[in-house]
Structure formats: C-alpha cells, structure tokens
Amino acid sequence: MNRAPAPAAGDNPLLRAVGVKKVFGSGESAVTAVKNINLDIARGSMIALKGRSGSGKTTLLNLLAALDQPTEGHVYYNGQEISRLPEKQRSVWRRSQIGLVFQAFGLIPLMSAYENVEFGLRIAGSDSRLHRERAERALEWVGMKPRMKHRPPELSGGEQQRVAIARAIAHSPALLLADEPTAELDSRMGLQVIKVFRDLVQELGMTVVMTTHDPGIMEIVDHVIELEDGEIAAQPNA
C-alpha cells in the first residue's frame, strides 16, 4: 500500500499538496496536466494561481478541492489526507468544509438571491433551523442583503457573482476555492468581487485560493503562484 507522507510536526498549513501529479488518459494519448507539485497554503491567506491557458492551474484547483484525485502524490486539508478518500466521502467533505465559486455563476434564474443561497445550504445538509440566519448573514457579508429578493436576471454580473459567493460561504467554510471568478466581469465589477474575497480573509479569517488571468488581481492577493507547463514556476517563500 502506498502510504501517505505525514505533514511535518509543528507545521500546520490549512492546505498542502505533496508530490502531486495528474495524468489524463493512458499510453501514447496520456497527457500530464500537473507534476512535481509541492505546495503549502497558509490559513487566512489569499492566493492566486496564475498561468497561461493549459498551464495546469484549473487542474490543480480541482485537485485541491478533491473534485479530482491525483495520479501520484497526496493532498491534505487541516492535516487530514483528502486525496485518497472514496468519492462519497470526498463529496461530503466538499459540501461541509469548503466553498466553491466558478466563472459561470450557476444561479437558478427563477429563485431569488436569498432562495439561491438557502438552496445551497439545503444541499450542504445544514441545520434547516439556521438557514434563514445563515443565508441572510452571507448575503450581508457580500453586500447583497438589500437585493436578496431580486432574481438573477434582475442583477448585474458582479451582483450575481457576489450572490454565488454568498451561496459558497453560507455554511462558514474555512476555505474558499474560486476558478476564474472575474472572467465574465468587467474590471470594475471584477475588483468589487475581489474586494469581497479580501474582506472575507480579513474579517472572517477565511482562506481564499483562486485561479486568474487578471493582472489587477495580482496586486491585491497575498501571494501569486505561477504555473508553467504543469509545474510551479514561482511561489511564495516558505
């Protein structure tokens, strides 16, 4: 059995990747998406994964979110290995421990902003007695409580993305993972969304990891990790 290397004593990052490699396909058609990934993400930090299209940043984010499993190596969350859990356990872990945000907002058009967030809590298996309080609190965190009765078609792109963020954080996860969260927004709305992330880090101690092409975001995050041909080309000092 391939035993996972234990995290070093006294070293407790929220998220850790050790010797991670991901290969899609097999034989002559095999494609190595990421390799030689060794990475620690500190608690309460805001990290950008940067790289050209095809650099492996989305694959790496999916591995960190346990949406996919590495071909080699291990991913830890809070000291526990998540990369080798069965799919059912990984699904339960994702629903309860992390928040996910994508460039496509994924809101249900016929539901109000509040209903979209509350629906996310139901999927997460949250205590139904706390749904209203948690949904309204999450919408307030992202500045959308005054518009919580509006449906997605009545909201701007930036407002829709903020509702999507509220849905992702309503169950108070320690970790928020976002794949190109500003790709569909103009620069002004994109900066509004990034300010929401920064506030979540500073006010709630959340950890945010996002992929991005946006050069403006690089000036706002704590660290930029650059990927090139599936490997980390540059990352913060330990």
Rank of each mutant, 00 (worst) to 15 (best):
A4G: 14
A6N: 12
P7W: 03
G10W: 04
L15R: 08
K21Q: 15
A30C: 13
K35R: 06
I37Q: 04
N38F: 05
K50P: 13
N62K: 12
T71A: 09
Y77K: 15
Q89T: 12
Q89N: 11
S96Y: 10
I98C: 03
G99L: 08
G99S: 13
V101D: 05
V101S: 12
V101C: 02
A104C: 12
F105D: 00
L107R: 05
M111T: 03
S112V: 10
E118F: 15
E118L: 14
R129L: 05
R134A: 13
M148Q: 02
E154S: 00
E154D: 02
E154P: 01
L155I: 03
E159F: 00
A164E: 06
I165E: 01
I165T: 01
I169Q: 07
A170N: 14
S172L: 08
S172F: 14
P181S: 05
L185S: 10
S187N: 05
R188P: 01
Q192L: 05
I194V: 06
D199C: 09
V201F: 03
M210E: 09
M210L: 08
T211Y: 07
V221T: 07
H223S: 14
I225M: 07
L227E: 00
D229S: 01
E231D: 07
I232M: 06
A234N: 00
